[in-house]
Simulated scan of single mutants.
Amino acid sequence: MNKWMFLMALLSVVSGLVAGQQTDLKVDKFSGEWEFSKVEMKLYAQDDGRLLEDKVFTTTESTKNINGLVPFSIKFSRHQCIISHRNGIEGGEFRLINDKEFTFSPDVQGKENLNSTNRIPAITYRYRIEDRNWLAIDMPAAFYKDNIRGVAVRLLYTCYYQLKPVK
């Protein structure tokens, strides 16, 4: 009886270690600094899904009129992440949800003073890694009324980054 309990405990520990190593290997594919390559912006009408606008921005300077939170560079180191964008720099924790999504939880100064009603929620991003050196991130959609067009819209940004070579 004791042998079986010992074997079950050992099996549980070993399977946990293997699962942890697999997660670490998946996280390692993000490691490094990713530099801005381009941003694709698509604007859709909410009522019928019609494409209203489609633009590509290929320099950080050309993005001055888009969302200030679109990352210009992202640095991953294990489960930590530093994001640089037009509005500043944010650091925080990142976690893989699955092979297509990760979450980013921004660090907050004085977070020990935050209570459960005013915590900053984690942001979920969809991603693809192409050829190990290219990262594509779909930013969370924005929904608002476009007053110029007079319609409710859905705004999508897909950001592309190239892995910066290590010197």
Rank of each mutant, 00 (worst) to 15 (best):
residue 67 N to C: 11
residue 12 S to R: 03
residue 28 D to Y: 01
residue 14 V to S: 13
residue 115 N to H: 10
residue 132 R to S: 14
residue 17 L to D: 03
residue 138 D to H: 08
residue 142 A to H: 04
residue 138 D to P: 01
residue 27 V to E: 00
residue 31 S to Q: 14
residue 103 T to W: 01
residue 62 S to H: 07
residue 116 S to W: 11
residue 15 S to Q: 04
residue 13 V to S: 04
residue 85 H to Y: 06
residue 105 S to Y: 12
residue 82 I to K: 08
residue 113 N to H: 10
residue 101 E to K: 14
residue 75 K to R: 14
residue 24 D to F: 15
residue 55 K to M: 10
residue 124 T to C: 04
residue 138 D to K: 02
residue 56 V to K: 05
residue 135 L to G: 00
residue 47 D to F: 10
residue 144 Y to M: 08
residue 145 K to G: 14
residue 101 E to Q: 15
residue 37 S to P: 04
residue 124 T to G: 05
residue 133 N to Q: 15
residue 111 K to W: 12
residue 80 Q to E: 06
residue 92 G to N: 04
residue 125 Y to I: 02
residue 126 R to G: 02
residue 109 Q to W: 11
residue 120 I to R: 14
residue 108 V to W: 02
residue 59 T to E: 10
residue 56 V to T: 10
residue 139 M to Q: 12
residue 28 D to I: 00
residue 69 L to R: 11
residue 29 K to G: 06
residue 142 A to M: 07
residue 114 L to G: 07
residue 132 R to E: 15
residue 96 L to T: 01
residue 25 L to C: 10
residue 93 E to T: 03
residue 30 F to W: 01
residue 70 V to G: 01
residue 90 E to C: 12
residue 97 I to L: 15
residue 3 K to E: 15
residue 112 E to D: 08
residue 35 E to S: 10
residue 52 L to Y: 02
residue 62 S to W: 10
residue 9 A to D: 09
residue 92 G to Y: 01
residue 6 F to D: 11
residue 75 K to D: 03
residue 61 E to V: 15
residue 22 Q to Y: 09
residue 75 K to C: 06
residue 90 E to Q: 15
residue 120 I to K: 15
residue 11 L to T: 14
residue 16 G to D: 11
residue 147 N to T: 08
residue 123 I to E: 02
residue 102 F to P: 00
residue 60 T to Q: 12
residue 71 P to F: 07
residue 99 D to R: 03
residue 36 F to S: 04
residue 14 V to Y: 11
residue 47 D to Y: 04
residue 79 H to T: 13
residue 94 F to Y: 07
residue 132 R to M: 09
residue 21 Q to V: 11
residue 125 Y to T: 01
